[in-house]
């Protein structure tokens, strides 16, 4: 992935209307991309919920070993006779959980440090900004691999925390920039003058106006967390017996799915990760479009030779 928000979205003229324009269905109508993205994510959430209630053991073994897709086992079986489709469904929940939990934690950090720092200003902002920039340039994934390799603890809890603590900085920086622009706006200055308390201003005035950027940053971290978790699982770090898409890939690799041409075994989990990531990314593109009207389609107006609309007009008789 590249970066949280396209910098375009951070353009100051875009965010003024973000609060109003984020409401309701109009957003979806304006951005088909966002609609598709939401559908995909919603689908996976449903799948995750489904397993919570209906699948008790996604790893159940059987004698149907390494069978390709068939009417009975839609996505075939593994080396140990596990049903790939069942595994896939059962893995959706934990994968989403890691993603959303790490995303949430990182977003909270980013909001507190980015918005808080920018709003307080002065020394504390300088310091927080420095910390943010340092964290941003220290390579996160190697650090995550090293730390989780050393921790050796199973379970997804520590992984969530590690991912969150290494991935907040990018979002924090974007939020800081936006807050700084907004801090100088009239309505904030006015509430400062009228002596409202700092935290109140942040919560009542600032947060609602940055909400689209916060959401966008959250989604970015979720994607990052899901990809990173998959990587860690693929390395066998963390609990290899948990069911996540990353672990499915790990077992497929270890048990030689490639050598035996069991494509139905390793393709689906990766594609699921990519599809979920695409859904999340599409939501973010949609947010970009809502925040920055210039990104919306204006094809109808675009002549080939010029940037601008040059269509000569109809003469009046």
């Amino acid at each position: 992935m590249s970066l949280p928000l396209s910098p375009a979205a951070a353009s100051p003229d875009g965010d003024a209307s973000s609060r109003a324009s984020l409401r309701g269905w109009r957003v979806l109508r304006r951005s088909p991309r966002m609609f598709v993205g939401l559908c995909i994510v919603f689908f996976f959430v449903l799948v995750a919920l489904y397993r919570t209630f209906f699948i008790h053991n996604g790893n159940a073994l059987s004698h149907q070993v390494l069978k390709g897709p068939s009417a009975h086992d839609w996505l075939g079986t593994t080396q140990l006779g596990q049903n790939v489709l069942l595994q896939l469904i059962a893995s959706a929940g934990p994968t989403l959980l890691v993603g959303f939990a790490a995303g949430l934690l990182a977003t909270i950090l980013a909001v507190v440090i980015g918005i808080g720092g920018a709003f307080l200003g002065g020394r504390s902002d300088d310091l927080l900004n420095l910390v943010t920039n340092v964290v941003l340039v220290i390579p996160a994934v190697p650090l995550i691999i090293v730390v989780s390799g050393f921790l050796k603890s199973g379970g997804i809890g520590p992984i969530i925390v590690i991912i969150a603590f290494t991935s907040w900085a990018g979002v924090s920086r974007v939020l800081r920039g936006i807050t700084l622009t907004m801090r100088n706006r009239d309505f904030i200055s006015a509430s400062k003058l009228s002596g409202e308390r700092t935290w109140r201003i942040i919560i009542v005035e600032l947060l609602p106006n940055t909400v689209a950027f916060v959401i966008s940053g959250f989604i970015f971290t979720v994607i990052f967390a899901i990809l990173t978790q998959a990587g860690l699982a693929f390395l066998g770090l963390g609990d290899v017996n948990a069911l996540t898409w990353g672990n499915m890939l790990y077992w497929a690799e270890v048990d030689g799915a490639l050598e035996v041409h069991a494509w139905w075994w390793f393709l689906p989990p990766g594609l699921c990760i990519a599809l979920l990531g695409t859904g999340l990314a599409l939501i973010n593109f949609g947010l970009d479009e809502v925040l920055n009207p210039r990104l919306r389609s204006q094809r109808a107006f675009r002549p080939k030779t010029s940037v601008f609309d040059d269509t000569p007009v109809a003469e009046v008789p």
Partner: peptide, 27 residues
């Protein structure tokens, strides 16, 4: 120099150069 979404829906603009040549229909 109108930029989208602006369009001139009616009208004409002519330029009459100093060189005395025909008026230029800018649109």
């Amino acid at each position: 120099l109108l930029r989208p979404p602006a369009t001139m829906i009616q009208g004409s603009v002519f330029f009459h150069g100093l060189d005395g040549s025909d008026p230029v229909d800018i649109l």
